[in-house]
């Protein structure tokens, strides 16, 4: 049996354990051998995106040490997965790093492309808005991008369509960035907040009860805005919906 290493990004571990738990339970339900290597910390993206990629050596080495042994590495975060795929390099074990780069998957792409899940037994009778996180969408091609002249597809939608009772709302701007952007959210506070407010508003005016997506960082950003606005609308990682009912 193939072994899955569960990669839970640092902020999910600390703030959104439920997204991690749902991911773990979902993969177990689908009959997989799932392990969470407890020595893991972070993929190094916050530093690299801030221009400090040269400081991520230790972080990268740790990542390789923790995950090299698995057949698949699965994570509920498109952004962290994209970072690993594009930027994970180590001086000491580059061969292993190269292998890790090819076998790391974001949860949705793992469910759709590798497991080819067609019949999820999930139930979530609510109106849901889907946020296309940029790194998952434009980096990992989870959903076709609105800028391109190309046939439409959406892997997260494919999964959400299998959830009983779930009604997916339409958005005015289907794939605009929420403005999180890692350090961008503090360095460029004004624009980041405005982007977040605008993204949340699109979901609110179209009647979302929940906003979901494959990247907890964007959802965390939108949650920060929603809470400040005293909104009743909640954010949920897509794993939590796919694992519901």
């Amino acid at each position: 049996m193939k072994r899955v290493g569960l990669f839970i990004p640092c902020y999910v571990d600390q703030f959104y354990p439920n997204a991690g738990i749902a991911t773990y339970q979902l993969l177990k339900k689908l009959g997989l051998d799932v392990t969470y290597p407890t020595g893991q910390t972070c993929c190094g993206q916050p530093m690299a995106n801030s221009g400090f990629e040269h400081l991520t050596q230790d972080c990268n080495q740790l990542f390789v040490d923790n995950f090299a042994e698995f057949d698949y590495i699965v994570s509920p975060s498109g952004s962290c997965v994209l970072h690993v795929k594009e930027h994970l390099h180590t001086e000491k074990s580059e061969e292993k790093a190269a292998a890790v780069r090819t076998k790391v998957y974001e949860l949705v792409e793992f469910l759709v492309d590798i497991l080819q899940v067609k019949n999820l037994k999930a139930k979530f009778p609510h109106k849901v808005g889907l946020h296309q996180s940029c790194h998952g969408q434009r980096g990992l091609l989870l959903t076709q991008m609105s800028e391109l002249v190309a046939p439409y597809f959406s892997k997260p939608q494919q999964l959400l369509a299998q959830v009983e009772g779930l009604e997916l709302i339409d958005l005015k701007r289907e794939d605009e960035c929420c403005g999180f952007g890692g350090t961008f959210c503090v360095v460029e506070e004004a624009v980041s907040v405005k982007m977040g407010k605008d993204r949340v508003k699109d979901h609110l005016v179209n009647g979302a009860e929940y906003i979901t997506g494959a990247d907890m960082s964007c959802l965390m950003h939108m949650e920060g805005i929603l809470k400040r606005e005293n909104s009743k609308v909640k954010v949920l990682h897509i794993a939590e919906i796919l694992n519901a009912g």
């Binding site: 999910v12 354990p17 738990i21 506070e189």
Partner: peptide
């Protein structure tokens, strides 16, 4: 002077991390 908190709430701190739950 936390620029996040100026216009956004912080995430709620859960009772345990995923790592702790897993353990």
């Amino acid at each position: 002077f936390n620029p996040w908190y100026k216009q956004r709430d912080m995430p709620e701190v859960p009772k345990e991390s995923f790592g702790e739950w897993y353990k």
